[in-house]
Every structure is written in structure tokens, then in C-alpha cells.
Nucleic acid binder design. Sequence first.
DNA 1: CTTGAAACAAAAGAGAA
DNA 2: TTCTCTTTTGTTTCAAG
Lengths: 187, 187
Amino acid sequence: MTIDKGPVVAHGPAMIGLKLDDRDLKILSILSREGRLSKADLAKRVNLSPTPLWERLKRLEKAGVIRGYSADISLKGVAPHIEVFVTLELENHRAESFQAFEQSMGRHDEIVACWAIGGGFDYVLQIITRDIDSYQRLIDTLLDGKVGLARYYTYVVTKPVKLRGAPPLEFLLDGARPDGPADGSGD
Amino acid sequence: MTIDKGPVVAHGPAMIGLKLDDRDLKILSILSREGRLSKADLAKRVNLSPTPLWERLKRLEKAGVIRGYSADISLKGVAPHIEVFVTLELENHRAESFQAFEQSMGRHDEIVACWAIGGGFDYVLQIITRDIDSYQRLIDTLLDGKVGLARYYTYVVTKPVKLRGAPPLEFLLDGARPDGPADGSGD
DNA sequence: CTTGAAACAAAAGAGAA
DNA sequence: TTCTCTTTTGTTTCAAG
């Protein structure tokens, strides 16, 4: 059975040179932490009336800067689970191997994220699964498949130290600041 | 169609003892992908009228199962940036070293996430920064501080293969399935 | 769980600065 | 243009059954 879980990666529309002013920044910054804030309240927080805010939002969403919204689910107190990071290397570096591997990523819900990387390994995987046992079964599945794994290292998360940051918008968009004071509030 | 898996009893450090039925699961699953869906629409999608849905949602939010909502920001085409994973080990493993290190995580917006891990390293860091140069400056800051880094490995992301998805709720909450059919409905 | 009503938010338009 | 103001439609929340 192949479940189409869809998109392995949803690239935003290839867009270029969208200009974001300070208010856009603030909007993004607020929404990245309070994704369900009403547009009216958001407008107040950035000193705008609803309509202009609404237009900015639409622009940001259309441009793919805001890719979507999501609820932050905590498994704590809901189900036993472990979180694991894996760095791994493929046996061979032919394009078809990469492709086969990357497609297999989409077929496992337990693999919640995957990045291709440089620096001694080919991929980093973030996995959430029930326990070590089902983690090992997942790895075995990957090993058994046509995907050739040369080696992999397992890092079990013992404690989340810092969770869920938004990208450092102010820092990235405002060249100079060493470590942005994320908030220009006081409007 | 609704698959009846029977209620699952939540457990964890806080021992909440929250019972999640199939509909709660579906609600979580939908909201984790469409975090700004209106409650009215969500109600329709799970065959409920607004009020009971509203009560379930409130219960889930109060219990901390839904921790919050956030907008997914994509910087593609908006700002130059690189994403980096770092595995690192501290020089010494005294409690105060860990504590100092973990506090320093909170002081840098570029460090978007950090996990304590077992397996040869102490931490995994996920970093988003402007370029290699500012990445290196960040590392230097950590090296200069009282936080003693014994060694660290840098993995620059070359391609996001699978973007952070929801935790595999159905899989975690429903014992046996190897790879859950994420959806129990044809609504 | 349903109805239904009052309070509130979203979306779109007319027009002023 | 970009914002404010206004209207219509739809959503949220809660009381009562």
C-alpha cells in the first residue's frame, strides 16, 4: 500500500524580491507565535486598521511567505513516545539512490522531518515513534528496502531544550543587528 | 467512515488522564495541518455541530494537548539564509555546565531549536542564520563564553526533503499499525 | 448533542487623505 | 497609492433545552 501523504516538500511559489517593511516583519513575528490571533487584534497590534492588514496578510500568504498555519500539538501526557535524530549516509551517491531514499521519507509518518545535508553525512532525520523498538523496526524497514544505507547514527532526545523558534526574521532581514531584539513594540 | 479505535487514556508526567476518542484525534490531525480553520468548518469536517466541537477544543487546549498555534514562515525568496544542524559535546558534564549551556540557547534567536540527546553528543542544535560567516560568529560566541564546547560538527542543510509534519498521532495512539492510514474519513 | 441568539470577526466596497 | 469607514456575511461563544 502506498499512501499518498502528499508533499514531501511544498516549495512556495518561486518568488523573488518581495519587499517586507517593518510592519510586515512584525506581523510575521506575531503570527509565528500566535497563529490564530484575529485579524482585528493583529491590526491593533501593528497600528493598522483591518483592511490594510488584511491586504498585507493576503499578500504574504499568496507570496508563500506565510506557508500555512498549524496547531502545536504536545504529545506529553497523551501518548508514550520517543523522539530521535538520525544522521545517515547512503551506500552510493547516484541520483537514483537519493531519489529513492527521499521518496521513502514520505511514506513514513514517524519521520516527521528530513533534511539533506553536507558535512560527512547525507541526511538528518527527525523521528517521533512509540519506543526504541518501533524505531528499530523503522530503521530495519529502511535497511531492507532498496534504499542502501551505508551507516547511520542514532541520537535519542532526552530533553527538548528549546522548542519551536520562528526563524530570526529581524536578524535575517535587518543585516546589522547582532542578535535582534525581536520586538519593536510600544506602538 | 469512522474507524473506532476506542478511547485512549492519556498519561505522562502530569498524569492528565485525558481521554481522546477518535474525533479528538481527527481534530488534532486536521488542526496540525490547517491551524486556522474556522471552528465551524472544523465542526463540519468531523461531523459535529459547533458547540460540541467548541467544547472539545477548549478541553484540548486547557489540557495542553494543543499548546498553541503558529504561522509557518518561509524565507525562501525573501531573505538570504542558511540552515545548519550542529551536534556538539560539552567539555565537562557537570550540572552547572549543562545549565549554563542551555541558558545560552535562549539568548540567540538564530538557534531555532535545541535538543539534549544521548549517543555520543550532548546536544543537537538547529540554526537559521544569514550565511556561513554569521554562523561561525555565533559558534565563536558560544566558544568564547563560559560554556565549554569540547567539539562540534556542522551540517549545512542543502535541501529540505520533508518539512516538519505533525507527529504521527494515529500511529502513536493506536498500538499495532506499522504505518498508519492517517485518515479515517471520506468527508 | 441540538437550537438559537447576541457578540464578534472576516471580507469586500466606496471613497477620503 | 494607501488608509479609514461602512456594510454584509459568516463565526464564536454561551444559555437553555
